[in-house]
Structures are given as C-alpha cells and as structure tokens.
Amino acid sequence: MTTALLIEQGLNGLQLGVQLFLMAAGLTLVFGIMNMINLTHGSLFMVGAFLAATVLAHTGSFVLALVVAVPATALAGLVLEAAVLRRFYGRSHLDQVLVTFGLIMVINELTRMVWGNVPVPMALPQVLSGAVTIYPGVTYPSFRLAILAVGLLVALGLYVVVVHTRVGMWVRAGASDRAMASAMGVNVGLVFSLVFAAGAALAGLAGIMAGPISAVQVGMGEPVLILALVVTVIGGIGSIKGALIAAVLIGLADTFGRVLLPPALGSMIIFMMMAAILAWRPRGLFPVHG
C-alpha cells in the first residue's frame, strides 16, 4: 500500500467515522436517556438529505440547503417524538422495535410518494467541486475535505457540550440515572424532546453530508442506521465518548477492510470487530449503565 493510498483511504475512513458519529450520537443518547431503541433514526438521515436536495435544486445554494434542512429535520424529529415515540419510552424493547419498524415503512413510503423512486441528484457547491493537493501526488476532493472539517467541528462541539456544559451534565445525568436526574430537578420531558431534536438534526446533517457522495434515495438510511447501531453497541450504549471512538474505529476499519481484503471478508470486518470487542466487553468499550 502506497503512502498516497494510505492517506486517501485514511481520510475516507475518518470521514465515514465522522458521519457515523453524527448518527450514533443521537442514537446512543436517545437510548441512554429514554431507554428507547429508535430505528427511525435512519429515516431522519434520509429526510435530511431529501430536504437539502430539494432546497438545493430550487435555490442552487448549498448553504441555504443546510440552513433549511437541518432545522427542518430537527422539527420532523420533534413531531415524530411528540406524536408517536414518546408513548413508547416505558414499553418493552420489542414494542419499540416493532413500532419504529412500522414507522420506517410509513416514512419510506411517504418519501417515495413525495420524491418518487428515482434517486435525486445533489449537485456539489461550485467552490467545493474541485480537488486539492494534500500531499505530493495526492489530490483529494475538496467537498470531502469540507465534510470532514464540518463533521469534525460538529463532533467536537457536541463532545464539548455534552461533557463540559450544564445542559450536557443534565443529559449525562439522564443517561446514567433517570430517577436521579428527575430528583435533581431536571425537567426530564424537556430534556427528552431536546435530545431527540438534537439527535434528529445531527442525523439530518449526516444525511446532507452523504447526499452529494451517494445517491439521495428511499432506503438510504437503513445501511447507515445499522452501522451506527454497531458503533453505539461497541462504544457502550449511552456513552458519547464511546460513540466517538467507536465511530472512528469503524469508519477506518470498514474503509481499509474494503480496500485490503477480499470482498466477502471486507464486508464482514466491522461485524467481526464488533463480535470480538463484545466477547471481551459485553457492554461495550465505555459502559454507562450499571
């Protein structure tokens, strides 16, 4: 493997990792705090991408697409939480899996009704459509670099908010001990809605970032959802730190696995990694609960 390839694939892996972290952050917090398995998280990823693609097609402004689509996805998440999911926080995991499974079908079909079956193209913004030389002989698409930068920034920002601020403290308190959090006077209902909306916004952002690289189409959320679940489980459900580390780990392993290993093995590598890590630590790298 040449240095050039190493750098290029390393960046690709990091970029995938950042995207997965944006997805997993919402999943792991929603699970950690509400004890809720939310399979619709992948749908929010998809909704974000579709909204952004539409705004982009009408205005031609990528910035506007971001500014509209991210809050809109957060709003979609809020509506979803208030209308359906809130009722399922106290129910069994089985019920949660089933209801979100049904919701995925509904949301996918609604999306298909609005946007159709054909993938919607998402043009790259003019400034970022070129490539830059990042190492003698290695060019890398500017857009991917931009994604990486934005993703890293958001990931770090999120990490700082969760680990170092008062709101973050509530969130973490909620994640590790709900009863304690509510005894401390935290408005649990509000924190739930807030966390859900924030998770939705991040999922939407991840979807928008993926849009120009892969096609914007119905069902695009599910593969990412499952990778994000793997990240969540490896990191330890409820742990932001675990999600960050696991996301980068999985992003790199998946990218390099596909380049270096035969296809059947390459597609297995992250799952084998998950199996190995869980055999060693059944509750993930950074267990939060008990």
Partner: peptide
C-alpha cells in the same frame, strides 16, 4: 449480552450475513 444489546447485535449479525452473500 441482554436487552437492547442483544437486539442490536443480532441485527448487526443479520447485516453481516447479508453483505457476505452480496459480496
């Protein structure tokens, strides 16, 4: 593992099998 971990892990294994046969 148990509970939510079990659900997510079996889901991940399912996808592993899926991708293996795709590959």
């Amino acid at each position: 593992t148990s509970g939510a971990y079990f659900i997510m892990i079996t889901l991940a294994f399912n996808q592993m099998l899926y991708y293996v046969f795709v590959a």
